[in-house]
Computed example of a mutant assay.
Amino acid sequence: MDITQADPKGLIRESYQIEGISLDECRSIFMDWALSLPVNSDDQEAIRTVLLAYNAPQDHPMSVVLAEGLSRAGETPARRGGWRGRRL
């Protein structure tokens, strides 16, 4: 996957250029970025591509968010609560 496919709107690139960006702001940008990916794309490959392409410091808030995205890939979603979760 090339960088134009992995970051089609340049959201991740722009987040690295915002001085003093917070972790919460990066999470919001990450959500927008994830929703802008093509439907059949591999999210994990896209995350790896932007991490390699932008080569940003590991302590940058966006790098932290992207690393969380990689580490949580294999987790199973939690059960929904309420009557929807108990419905057969």
Rank of each mutant, 00 (worst) to 15 (best):
D43M: 08
F30C: 12
G82P: 08
M1A: 12
S15D: 05
A34S: 13
I12G: 01
M1N: 11
S15L: 08
I3V: 15
D32H: 02
G10S: 07
R87A: 14
G10Q: 10
I47G: 00
C26S: 07
I21S: 01
D2M: 10
A53K: 07
I21T: 03
R86P: 03
E45M: 13
L52N: 15
A67R: 14
G85N: 03
Y16A: 11
H60F: 02
Q58R: 04
L70Y: 04
S15G: 00
E19Q: 13
S28C: 01
R72N: 11
G81N: 08
Q5H: 10
R80K: 09
Y16K: 03
R27E: 13
Q44T: 15
S41H: 06
Y54R: 02
S28F: 11
M62L: 11
Y16C: 06
P77K: 03
M62P: 02
S28T: 11
R86A: 10
P61D: 01
R87K: 12
R86N: 11
Q58G: 11
R48T: 09
L66M: 07
Q44P: 00
S63R: 01
T4W: 04
V39I: 15
E75W: 04
S71P: 02
W33E: 05
S22R: 10
A73L: 12
A6C: 07
Y16F: 15
S36H: 05
D59G: 00
S22W: 08
S22V: 05
V64A: 05
I21R: 01
D43Y: 08
M1V: 12
T49M: 10
V50F: 06
A56C: 11
Q5I: 14
R48H: 09
S63K: 01
N55L: 07
D32T: 11
D42R: 00
R13Q: 12
Q17R: 12
S71E: 15
D7W: 00
M31I: 15
A46I: 06
S41R: 01
R48K: 15
M62E: 01
I47E: 00
P57T: 05
D59Q: 06
A6G: 04
G85M: 07
D42E: 02
A46Y: 01
I18V: 15
G74Q: 06
G82V: 10
Q17C: 02
I3E: 03
R13F: 10
G20Y: 06
S22G: 02
I29S: 10
W33P: 04
E45S: 15
D7A: 06
V39T: 15
V50C: 02
D24G: 13
D59L: 00
Q5E: 15
A73W: 09
E45W: 04
Q17G: 05
E75L: 13
A67M: 09
Q44A: 14
D24Y: 08
E68G: 00
T76M: 09
M62H: 01
Q17D: 06
V65I: 13
E14Q: 10
L52S: 14
L23G: 06
D2K: 13
R80E: 11
Q44M: 14
M1E: 14
L11K: 05
S22K: 11
D42G: 04
T4E: 08
P61C: 05
E45P: 01
A73M: 12
P8S: 09
S22P: 03
S41D: 11
A73C: 05
A53L: 03
R48Q: 14
Q58C: 02
S36A: 13
V50D: 00
E75G: 09
L37I: 11
Q58P: 08
M62T: 01
S63A: 15
R87Y: 14
L51K: 13
M1L: 14
L37S: 04
